[in-house]
Design a protein around this nucleic acid. Structure first.
Lengths: 230, 230
DNA sequence: CTACAGTATCTGGTACGCCATAATACGATT
DNA sequence: AATCGTATTATGGCGTACCAGATACTGTAG
């Protein structure tokens, strides 16, 4: 049997273990608001809803705990983590530092491929805004930063940013819907790309920082408004 | 009953669950080299060694997986994560960005308490070097950075740094033992403190970056030397 | 010496049961 | 009637046993 054929025949195996599937499901459910912050996550209920055993559910909950998405109260069990405003600001700050770093590295590499890839993601974002498809805006924004990090082989930093980002996901979806964000957001991101194109490391750094700083400010306003409403 | 008395009486409850104890044990065992990188971690063996059930062991392994300390090979099970040289460099780079950020914030705050606390940790490091107590050097270095972050209320960033640090822990213990590191290390750290004392944010940032850059360079040398030896 | 079959090992996953604790409801006592 | 003690329930923490499937090991036949 030829090697090529063997590859062609290869069955697309799920490869994902049940645990990973369950993990994704629950994380999904948390980030898109099916479980609200503060909700209790009763193990046996989750077993029923997911159709898996308690062992799996427990492993999933531990994993999400270490991601910061669920908190485990002593003698009371897991709840969906609340995020307070200060923590959110810290997360934005860290993202600023790391994304700024990645942007600087991209600029210093002076590679047309990087610019092209970023432009493509950026176009995707603009289109999604035009179509008013906010979910697509989020995924395209993620892919923009994903290329920013992976084009300069910074997968660890990308992992850190990703980890932090899920914790503020519902904030992201709120900031994105804000008035004017549909114009200013892509504008700021194109400044990042411009700086990278002309090899301006410092400029790229500043532009990336500015972008998350703006997001952070909006998030803060949104959060404190919500707190007042209660 | 007075409030003060109530606090004094408060019983020191263990609070730690069996899982947390086991988690700490295994993490300890990994970072101090009892389990070597690449070693398989057979669930049932761990059960026997820890004296706990598989349920607990599995949760612990998942947790360590999400910390990056163990890797799980499909259908083969968990092994102690190997760290390749590139990943280590990335981790040092991230630490540089975040510690630089914290140092800058400390400098901008211009608080004598911060300087005093940092001086104290630094003195601890010098003493530990003098006594040739390398374990103490590590813990004192950690406490130096801990104050750097917590004095400006950046506990999230501190958590990230901590998470990354455990993954390169054995590298740290190797770099620390290097010739001259006992002199240069504290020297670089005192430059950070000096910059903070005079409120020089940019200088503190650079000094912190320089420090981890030096550590990174040593780590790279150590790692490639080890790779050659094999 | 190789190929193959059988076997041991181990993970991934499930089911079930026990115990400890917290909260709640309920009942008794003063 | 208010309070105190007790039973019940819900739930998490933990343990054991079992099974299926993948992998590694081994010994034997050709």
């Amino acid at each position: 049997m030829s090697g090529a054929l063997k590859d062609a025949i290869r069955v697309e195996r799920p490869a994902k273990t049940l645990r990973e599937l369950a993990l994704d499901k629950v994380r999904e459910a948390i980030v898109n608001g099916y479980f609200r912050p503060g909700d209790r996550l009763v193990e046996r209920d989750l077993c029923a809803q997911l159709g898996v055993s308690r062992t799996v559910v427990r492993e999933v909950l531990r994993h999400l705990e270490s991601e910061g998405l669920v908190a485990i109260l002593p003698n009371k069990g897991p709840i969906v983590a609340q995020l307070d405003i200060d923590e959110a600001k810290q997360i934005y700050e860290i993202r600023g530092a790391l994304e700024g770093m990645a942007a600087r590295l991209c600029a210093e590499r002076r590679s047309p491929e990087i610019v092209a890839a970023l432009e493509e993601s950026l176009a995707g974002i603009r289109n999604s805004y035009r179509d008013n498809d906010m979910a697509a805006v989020l995924t395209n924004t993620s892919s923009f930063y994903h290329t920013l990090f992976t084009m300069v082989d910074r997968n660890v930093a990308w992992g850190v940013v990703n980890l932090l980002t899920v914790r503020i996901n519902h904030l992201r979806s709120m900031t994105i819907k804000t008035e004017r964000r549909g114009i200013e957001g892509p504008l700021q991101m194109s400044k990042i790309v411009d700086a990278i194109r002309r090899g301006d490391g410092e400029g790229a750094y500043r532009a990336a920082m500015d972008h998350v700083a703006a997001a952070s400010a909006i998030a803060e306003a949104v959060l404190s408004a919500k707190k007042l409403a209660e």
